[in-house]
Design a protein around this nucleic acid. Structure first.
Lengths: 340, 340
DNA sequence: TTGAAAGCGCTAACAT
DNA sequence: ATGTTAGCGCTTTCAA
């Protein structure tokens, strides 16, 4: 059997309290006994049972991470950065795929609480206020990532989606495009609404006119992006540029264009959102609005960490700024020669 | 404060043992009291503290998953399937990114043990026998995924890499190719060696000759695949086909070809390995050797589950079969017209 | 500086 | 059918 603190104490001829103190570097212990006990622990191959520690100290050093689907590159990259930072701080990450289902979300939330995770990182879709209620108030630290939760006093880390939408549209407008379609992921997401608003603002600011016919809604898969983009491209009047609200949809759009013999960026410019590694992999390389995924992950963990530290800080919202990353999927209307 | 089993017992006027029994559906409890206690628990919003449960029952319902990098699509997809199955069985997954570093691997391994996870899923690279020793013997259930660990009595789930290599090469040979290069991920991996052997076997079986000059070694990134493929393509005599040992490398190969104005599949056929969702996203769509990722994940969890159930089953190795998935990145040597 | 002892919240014999 | 009680392995006052 694995040695316990009792075994160590007996072996060293001291009490378990003393051993506990050298383990945790708490209290006052003479240099001599500290060393002796340390040696003995090493010899015996002793390692504290962290479940017992958790029970008495009420800290599990576990963080629950809720996201729609870890196999989605955006979330995979996010998860990676989160885990890295958490690890640095001594925390483990428990992943929970919700598929944006309210039930799954709720199920995980209650389960994680029973497991006494120290905090929760919420990067999943429909952060229904009701679901949030499951956590909020029960003084379980939580921070929401990349999701705006209006009217809820929770810590949040996100990118400026409005600005992102603006950047994408402005880029296309500057290239001379006027018939710019936008494909949003879902109107249920505040981030989608913000990106749409940003797109609209850019349009109007540049003397353009916002037209409902250029707004298409899909879900978050390549396939649905392809389908929705197809509808746009088959319409009587076809857009010369498409702003897809995430890279997957942008890729779907490119595929839809290819299937119809429409060249990108020759006849159609495409802008994505997220700047996942996919952008560099597809052809043409995708111009996109880059989210600082790494920072998003780190800041979220840091913010949560503060809360978990008992820091009764006022709830805050950290807004990171997106950045336009120009690659090869966009070009001036009418071709590079006629560049404005 | 959250109610404990004592609160419930007091409220119901019974002993905690009775409450425990209705929680766990163990022992004999009259229908009446069961219902009454259930109601009371619901009223009080009682939920068992799983840390305490874990301490006394010695089961945490946590599984540690070690993989190189969750942001790699292959592992992300694997992780997704693993989490799904684990969730069905009531287990949570703790992710650990090792970057194939022996130290990180070791660190996580000891840490997970202290946290008393019920089992470990090892999908990380250099499963050094020594590292394995950290777990093996300490009767911590473990199963290794997609990694062959020679001479170690651990449960394993993997695909037949030899067959995979064979399928890839045979496909190219049947298309008439003779100058077929292979890019392996790392010769340290048994899977790489097996794929290479399969490739070689196919070659020789088809009357070809194995030539060292067609074997290139890279690591597991798109960039390195691109670089290594570049070397192959710039050589005096250029291959007409490349078998890359994973999709990322295959994509790198396609990019290297594109950068040189070499058309794929026109002048160069490319086959990948894994069948991640990337295959359908890039242009041309990638012909690849498909791993049954979903099955891999599920079977691994199931196998681990048996062990955790105390099933003293003999160690076993489950070998799943790969399948060739033909898409658009391969074509007969000399063009589709001259198809053999 | 060190130790005794009372929890933490639950499970599981063993009694009743 | 229900209750008593001794742990599980550790933390943390409070004494000594």
């Amino acid at each position: 059997m694995k040695p316990t603190i009792y075994d160590v104490a007996r072996q060293a001829g001291v009490s378990i309290a003393t051993v506990s103190k050298v383990i945790n570097r708490t209290g006052k212990i003479s240099e001599k006994t500290r060393e002796r006990i340390s040696e003995i622990m090493a010899e015996m191959g002793y390692a504290p049972n962290l479940v017992a520690t958790a029970l008495s100290s009420k800290k599990t050093y576990m963080i629950g991470l809720l996201l729609p689907d870890i196999s989605n590159p955006y979330f995979a990259e996010l998860a990676r950065n989160i885990e890295d930072r958490a690890q640095e701080l001594g925390y483990n990450i428990v992943i929970c795929n919700t598929d944006n289902h309210v039930d799954k979300e709720r199920e995980y939330l209650t389960f994680l609480q029973q497991k006494s995770v120290d905090g929760i990182l919420l990067a999943t879709g429909l952060a229904h206020p009701e679901s949030l209620g499951l956590v909020t108030g029960k003084n379980l630290p939580i921070t929401v990532i990349a999701r705006e939760v209006p009217r809820s006093p929770v810590n949040t880390v996100l990118v400026d989606d409005f600005m992102g939408g603006y950047l994408a549209a402005a880029h296309l407008l500057e290239l001379g495009h006027r018939d710019i379609a936008i494909i949003v992921e879902s109107m249920d997401l505040e981030s989608s609404r913000q990106r749409l608003k940003g797109y609209r603002a850019a349009l109007e600011e540049h003397g353009g006119v916002f037209d409902e016919k250029w707004v298409a809604v899909s879900d978050f898969t390549v396939a649905s992006g392809m389908e929705v983009a197809g509808g746009l491209l088959d319409a009587a009047v076809r857009p010369t540029a498409v702003f897809a609200c995430n890279d997957l949809l942008a890729i779907g759009t490119i595929q839809a264009a290819r299937a119809r013999g429409i060249s990108v960026p020759g006849e159609l410019s495409v802008v994505g959102f997220d700047n996942t590694f996919l952008c560099g992999i597809i052809d043409p390389a995708l111009t996109t609005v880059g989210q600082p995924i790494r920072e998003l992950g780190r800041q979220a963990v840091d913010l949560l960490h503060k809360q978990m530290g008992g820091d009764e800080l006022a709830r805050q919202r950290v807004v990171l700024l997106p950045e336009l990353v120009v690659r090869s999927s966009t070009q001036p209307l009418g071709g590079p020669d006629k560049a404005k």
